[in-house]
Amino acid sequence: MNVFDIIGPTMIGPSSSHTAGASRAGLVARRLLGEEPVWARVVLYGSFALTYAGHGVDRAIIGGLLGFELDDVRIRDSFRFACKAGLDFTIEISEEDMGHPNTACICLRGKKGGSVSIVVRSVGGGVVNVVEIDGGEVLFSAEYDTTVIFNNDRPGTVARISAVFAAHEINIAFMRVFRKYEGKEAIMVIETDQQAGEDVVSELRASENILKVITIPPFRV
């Protein structure tokens, strides 16, 4: 924690959890997609679903999808900007209990044909946690350089991946491994103190049992 967690963030109001957190949720989804989104389906749950109009949750998420930062006044008119940018979107309200009051599900398709789907929670102060990606359970906040790796659950995979980071002198701050069933697909989330560059990513992609690698920059410098 530092002074700018207390005096900050600079953001578009009215709520750090519902507005700043929502725009960050959109931004994280955009970064995970890694390209310009052309189609989005957003589902809001809990308090997001109940108070989205007054807090601008919907406009904030769409603003984030367009790449607007938390303090970008264009968030207020993000629907209009989405139209201009060629982003076709739907926003749905669900009564389903997702276990956390401020939850959204964001599914995206990009210009180049990529897609990603996440479940994200706004946990207060504009901070978010991604709790699901492409159907797999995860947990990360995107406050660090984050690499998400989809891999086959085989012995030695974790060691091989961490060796790549070590070889490039990238320090791993946090590392979590998730899987549903033994021997099936697993997801690894690696948060690092340095950025994993293109060279690291292509080396990871080339290594055995790796299905997909996504890397995103941190929100805080």
């Binding site: 005096i7 600079t10 109001g13 009215p14």
Partner: peptide, 21 residues
């Protein structure tokens, strides 16, 4: 009020209490 109108503010420490400081 600016916060309530989706204006740009500095959370201090939160958005709801951003006017006092």
């Amino acid at each position: 009020e600016h916060n309530a109108c989706m204006g740009r503010i500095v959370a201090a420490p939160t958005a709801g209490s951003c006017g006092i400081l």
